[in-house]
Design a protein around this nucleic acid. Structure first.
Lengths: 196, 196, 196, 196
DNA sequence: CGCTAATCGAGACGGTACGTCCCGTCTTCAG
DNA sequence: CTGAAGACGGGACGTACCGTCTCGATTAGCG
């Protein structure tokens, strides 16, 4: 994700703003983060932020994308070993790792907060984050259906959520700790539910 | 839930504040709600709010409780007909209704936003909202285990989330609409996963 | 000045309130003093203050009187040695001492502030503080007129102010320091002005 | 007195704030005046006031200067007719007029209240208001000394106060009304005191 | 290769809300 | 009924940020 479409736009500012946003979100509760604080940290005028981002939420989305671009995007690298349970175990463990990581977790948190407050942003997130992730997994599900590991009439959207929702729910509710063991247990149950 | 423990506390103010909070949360985006606005609507001094509630989040928790106290608390009235699937269908449909209701949904939304911003509040919500709900359902699960409808070694916490998490996830992600049909589909899958 | 007219009135409270008022006025800038602070220091309910004093100004007036009652009231003890200049030198030096004293000065200051804000209080001060002081000095002036030390047609009010106003002015303007030498210089000039 | 030293500063706001301050001080008791009220009257954000003035007192000083700048500054236009008594009569009568004017009096009052509460402001007033006025009069005194109308060894500061203090004292004590006749009487006495 | 228009940093501006302090009144309970 | 305690509705405080708006000072790309 280089600069943007506008050639005049300062790449230096763009990067500094997203960098500052990531850092601040990691350093303090999201409620304490202000555009002014981001501008100051990035040594940028406030207007430069307002010029290129609609809202703090949009800024958070981009900051998260920037971070994913930097990292390996493991969560999406979904292998097909022929064993769906094994493959999903990898996916869910990676999810646990992200929900646990001090680098990612605060950004997810920020994103959740913003998406709950702004329906437009919520739809944007569905399309830019949720849907791609779903499509990757759905493809793997179809392959598993062909291999007879999943009932052919299964609703893939519901199936997808059967795996992911429990992880998300635990994270957000804070009632239990997220562990690889828990991920494995969820995969076991979900596989049983989807078995032909 | 009458006044509180302090006999000096004005019941009139307490009720007016919670009432105003509920109304305002329903009328406008949560981000636009201010303590000042609540105080004005309740015809109360700001200090009276700050005296009895730590934060806007704590106020939202109480407002939700007040609303539940007023209503029938159907979600918790969990029958035991001997047919777990049927009973859980009732619970999940009631959940769908709440996530859909213009009376409840904005308050849940507000609660989620606040709990994501304040770990202390999150734990309070776990204990005052999540845990009681879980215990009700867990009791029903144990009865179903006795009746041989659920595997005796099932982790009831995971089982609980297998039902509830997909509903919550759909609501928060906004990727799909919540319907009774979807609730039924989730119950079907979850029952399959838990079957002995 | 014992309790007051009401026999039910608690002498203990009355004294504690005036005591607290004096102390606080000496300890901090007058603008920071609150009724609430006085009540707390005096271990008294706020209502007890509001019951017996119209305003903070009235409280200050009483606090000053209480202090004068305790002290020697030297400023008023005006001797008649036959030498008006010498006698006035005593009066003006005593005035300098009061304007300089850490016990009195803050109370005068408080009184000035209040009287500038409340015409009713200002008149009360004229009658309870200014006028008695003037009468004492005026009596001495008349005696000096009889002795031929002061012009018989002199307006005693103007004469009085000729002595006192320069002291007051220096104190309030803060442009110069108040000293006994200055008091003597003022007496010299005023005597010259009033000489037959 | 145009804007200030900072070119970014809005002249429109500066003028509106001082204007509003003057108006409000004239319209109501000083104790009822709030920064908030001034900001509202001036259609200005509170921060704009706090940005450029340390305190309400500093604002009052500037408001008074603004008013003087607008008017003729008669009090300072001190003629030298060769007759000191006549010249001083003009000055003191002008002073009476100011202490009597509904335009000036409330501002002086406000200034006195503030200066009594803030030593830093008091010193500022000495330098910006008291001292210039003194210097004008002192120059006239020196000219009178050259003309043999005033004792050559007179302390000009004390002499200045001999004229001004009685006016100020009457005004602040509220014991007597201020009139031109009184001003003339004071000049007579002071001239007698200073005569060679 | 200089012109000019967009972009930049900086930060003042009119506002809204914050959380706190105090006002003067009212309510409760103890003596 | 007085008095200590302190909750109450309310007004203002001084601060933090909002999103908009000038200011020069770069800084491209086009002419």
């Amino acid at each position: 994700m280089p600069s943007a479409d506008n050639p005049r736009r300062s790449e230096r500012s763009r990067a500094a703003i997203l960098q500052a946003t990531q850092e601040l979100i990691r350093e303090q509760p999201y409620g304490k983060i202000s555009i002014e604080g981001i501008a100051a940290r990035a040594k940028v005028g406030k207007q430069t932020i307002y010029r290129w981002w609609r809202s703090k939420g949009a800024l958070v989305v981009d900051a998260l994308h920037e971070q994913n671009a930097a990292g390996a995007q493991e969560a999406m690298a979904l292998p097909d070993t022929g064993d769906l349970a094994a493959d999903m175990r990898l996916v869910l463990r990676a999810t646990v790792d992200e929900f646990t990581s001090p680098d990612f977790e605060p950004l997810f948190r920020a994103l959740s907060i913003e998406s709950l407050q702004d329906p437009a942003l919520q739809q944007q997130i569905v399309e830019r984050i949720y849907r791609p992730q779903f499509e990757f997994v759905a493809a793997r599900f179809r392959s598993a259906q062909d291999a007879g590991q999943v009932r052919p009439d299964a609703d893939l959207a519901v199936a997808f959520e059967l795996f992911m929702a429990p992880m998300f729910y635990r994270w957000q509710s804070g009632a239990h700790t997220l562990t690889h063991d828990h991920a494995d247990a969820v995969v076991d149950l979900a596989m049983r539910a989807l078995a032909p």
